[in-house]
């Protein structure tokens, strides 16, 4: 990656909760167009890392910079900063009292003060890209898990974020729905979206990642810019042991 197109920079991030260290001195730089996949065992801090970047958690040390500006949950500009950081959660969390179209246009209209017609036009185009334009007037409860998750991705995209954080977005889905959601993410990656992805889908991680981060115990244990090589023969024993748990041969 060339220099100067850095989107996100994390410096010595430290996060504790009730005396337990959740994130222990993590530093990371994400460049424009990069897709970084974070993997690791449950409780290693990978979801917390994403939540810290979106300032949903308070941090005890280090700093997070988006385009050089600190992301600080106590600062006045925090909603401005969050606008540029898209996040999709494991449980999709659409707004149940809004239709699909209202779900994806609420923030563009209320936060970015865009014209309703413009926001809706773009929303329908994006919904069409994920194959859901015909469901725009339905309510979330009428959709399957996979469909809801695709809507949640569109909801984040409608804000034109600089970076998209995906937090185990297929973990709550039935197996046959995982594919339709991952297809959407793959196409985003191909079109140059900058993403930080936490997932347990190893085959997907290998296909989509420019870079792999393996976390354990709140630290980056192994980092690899060659995902194929990482999955074939990881350098650290810990990563090897972790990857082995996905083998059934």
């Amino acid at each position: 990656m060339e220099h100067g197109n850095e989107v996100l920079r994390i410096e010595h991030l430290h996060k504790e909760f009730e005396g337990n260290v959740i994130i222990n001195d993590i530093s990371l730089t994400v460049h424009k167009g990069e897709v970084i996949v974070v993997i690791g065992p449950s409780g290693c801090g990978k979801s917390t890392l994403l939540r810290c970047i979106n300032a949903l958690e308070d941090i005890q040390g280090g700093q997070i910079l988006l385009d050089g500006v600190p992301v600080d949950r106590t600062a006045k500009n925090i909603s401005r900063m969050r606008e540029k950081i898209g996040m999709v959660f494991q449980s999709y969390d659409l707004f149940p009292h809004k239709t699909i179209l209202q779900n994806v246009t609420l923030a563009p209209i209320k936060v970015q003060k865009r014209k309703k017609e413009d926001a809706e036009k773009e929303a329908v185009e994006l919904l069409d890209r994920v194959g859901l334009a015909d469901r725009k007037d339905d309510y979330p409860r009428q959709l399957s898990g996979g469909q809801k998750q695709r809507v949640a991705i569109v909801r984040a995209l409608c804000m034109h974020p600089d970076i998209l954080l995906l937090d185990e977005i297929t973990a709550a889905l039935d197996p046959e729905m995982v594919h339709e959601v991952l297809e959407v993410v793959l196409s985003l990656a191909r079109s140059g979206s900058t993403m930080l992805i936490v997932t347990h889908e190893m085959a997907f991680a290998r296909a989509v990642a420019n870079r792999i981060l393996f976390l354990d115990d709140g630290r980056i244990v192994e980092e690899s810019a060659d995902p194929k090589k990482f999955f074939a023969c990881p350098e650290t024993e810990r990563a090897g042991a972790f990857l082995k748990t996905f083998d059934y041969e």
């Binding site: 979106n54 949903l56 909603s79 401005r80 969050r82 606008e83 540029k84 950081i85 898209g86 996040m87 959660f89 969390d93 659409l94 707004f95 609420l106 923030a107 209320k110 936060v111 970015q112 909801r155 984040a156 804000m159």
Partner: peptide, 8 residues
């Protein structure tokens, strides 16, 4: 949190 993450 979803609402906040959308910049609200």
């Amino acid at each position: 949190e979803s609402a906040l993450s959308l910049g609200m």
